[in-house]
C-alpha cells in the first residue's frame, strides 16, 4: 500500500470532512458570534430553546436512529436531569457546574436501569416499556414531597462563583457552547467503533453478534449515553426556564423529540440539529401566524396551540411518506446537485 494513500485516508477520517462542511462551519461560527448583537431577546430565546433541543435530540438519535431502539421515554430523562439539578442546586447548594454533569449521570444511571430489562424487548414492546418508565417518573414527580407535584419547583440561576447568568445573551453563549460540544462528541462517537457497533446492531443484530459485537453491552450503552444527553438537556432547560413542573416533561415532549429526529434524519448528527431547529421553531411560527390573523379570527389562537402535538404528528407522517431520510436527505441531494455544478472545489 502506498504511503500517499494513507495520508489521504487520514484526512478522510477527519471530523469535518470537506470544504462544503467547513464553509458551513464558518458561517455557523460567524452567526453564533454576531446573532446576540443583531437579534432581540425574543429571537434569542428561540435560539436558546433550539440549542437545548439539539442536545436532547442528539441523544435520542443515538438510541433510535443509530441503535434502532424505539423509545417513548426521552422526556422522562430530561425530567430526571431537570429535577436532579434543581434539587442539587436548590436544596444542597451544589454549584451548577457540578450539578450539570451529575444530572446527566443521574439520567444515565436510570437509562441503564431501563436499558437492562429492555434487552428482551424489541420494537413496539420496547417503546411500551419506555413509555411505562416515563409514566412512573411522571407519577413520582407529581407525588413526591420534594418535587412539589403540580406546583412545580423554582430553579436557581446559573452561577459561576459571583458571576450569575441573567440575560438571554449570556444564556445564548453558554447554551451554544454546550450544544457545540455535544455535536462534536456525537460526531466523534459516530465515526468511532461505538457508532459503528450501534449501527451494526440496528441493521442486523445477528450478524453484529457474529462479528464480535456484544449486543447487550452496546444496547445498554446506547440507553446510558442517550439518557445522559437527555439529562444534560433537561438540566439546561430547568436553569433556563427557572421553573419546572412535571407537565413540561410528559409524553408530548418525548413525541416532539421523536419528531425532531425523524424530520431531521435518523442516524445522523446533522439530522438531529436540523430537526431540533425545525421542531422548536414550529410553535413559534404558529404563534407568529396566529398573531397576524388574530384581528380577523379571534378564536384561532387557542385552537391552534392545542393542535401543536397534532402538527408534530402530521410532520412525522409526511416526512416518513415523502422524505424518509428527513432534512438530512434533502441536504444530501442539494449537496450532490451543487457538486455537479460546473466549478467544483
Amino acid at each position: 500500500m502506498s504511503g500517499s494513500y494513507k495520508v489521504s485516508y487520514k484526512e478522510d477520517m477527519a471530523i469535518f470532512q470537506n470544504l462544503w462542511v467547513k464553509v458551513w462551519l464558518i458561517i455557523f461560527i460567524i452567526l453564533a458570534v454576531f446573532s446576540p448583537i443583531l437579534l432581540n431577546r425574543y429571537q434569542l430565546s428561540i435560539l436558546n430553546e433550539m440549542g437545548i433541543a439539539t442536545i436532547g435530540a442528539l441523544g435520542l438519535n443515538l438510541l433510535i436512529g443509530y441503535t434502532g431502539q424505539l423509545s417513548l421515554g426521552h422526556g422522562a430523562f430530561l425530567a430526571i436531569g431537570a429535577y436532579t439539578s434543581a434539587l442539587l442546586t436548590g436544596k444542597l447548594g451544589i454549584p451548577f457546574f457540578l450539578s450539570l454533569p451529575l444530572s446527566g449521570l443521574m439520567a444515565s444511571l436510570l437509562g441503564l436501569v431501563v436499558g437492562i430489562p429492555s434487552l428482551r424487548l424489541k420494537g413496539l414492546y420496547l417503546a411500551l416499556g419506555t413509555l411505562a418508565f416515563a409514566f412512573i417518573v411522571e407519577y413520582i414527580l407529581f407525588h413526591w414531597d420534594l418535587t412539589q407535584g403540580d406546583l412545580g419547583m423554582a430553579v436557581k440561576r446559573i452561577g459561576i462563583g459571583d458571576y450569575v447568568i441573567r440575560s438571554q445573551r449570556q444564556y445564548f453563549y453558554l447554551i451554544m457552547a454546550f450544544a457545540t460540544f455535544a455535536v462534536i462528541c456525537t460526531k466523534n462517537l459516530d465515526r468511532s467503533k461505538i457508532g459503528r457497533s450501534f449501527k451494526a446492531i440496528r441493521d442486523r443484530d445477528i450478524a453484529a453478534e457474529a462479528m464480535g459485537i456484544p449486543l447487550a453491552k452496546y444496547k445498554v450503552m446506547a440507553f446510558g449515553i442517550s439518557a445522559f444527553y437527555g439529562g444534560v438537556a433537561g438540566c439546561l432547560m430547568a436553569h433556563y426556564n427557572r421553573w419546572i413542573v412535571p407537565g413540561s416533561f410528559d409524553i408530548s415532549l418525548s413525541i416532539a423529540y421523536i419528531a425532531m429526529i425523524i424530520i431531521g434524519g435518523l442516524g445522523t448528527v446533522l439530522g438531529s440539529v436540523l430537526g431540533a431547529i425545525l421542531i422548536t421553531g414550529v410553535p413559534h411560527g404558529i404563534v407568529y401566524v396566529v398573531d397576524l390573523l388574530k384581528g380577523d379570527y379571534p378564536a384561532l389562537s387557542g385552537f391552534i396551540i392545542d393542535f401543536k402535538l397534532g402538527i408534530f404528528g402530521l410532520i412525522i407522517v409526511l416526512t416518513l411518506l415523502f422524505e424518509p431520510k428527513g432534512l438530512f436527505g434533502v441536504y444530501q441531494r442539494t449537496k450532490v446537485y451543487f457538486k455537479t455544478w460546473p466549478f467544483k472545489y
Binding site: 459503528r196 449501527k199 451494526a200 440496528r202 441493521d203 442486523r204 445477528i206 450478524a207 457474529a210
Partner: peptide
C-alpha cells in the same frame, strides 16, 4: 450464505 451485511452502512 444469505447476505447479512449492515445494509445502511
Amino acid at each position: 450464505q444469505n447476505i447479512e451485511l449492515f445494509q445502511g452502512m
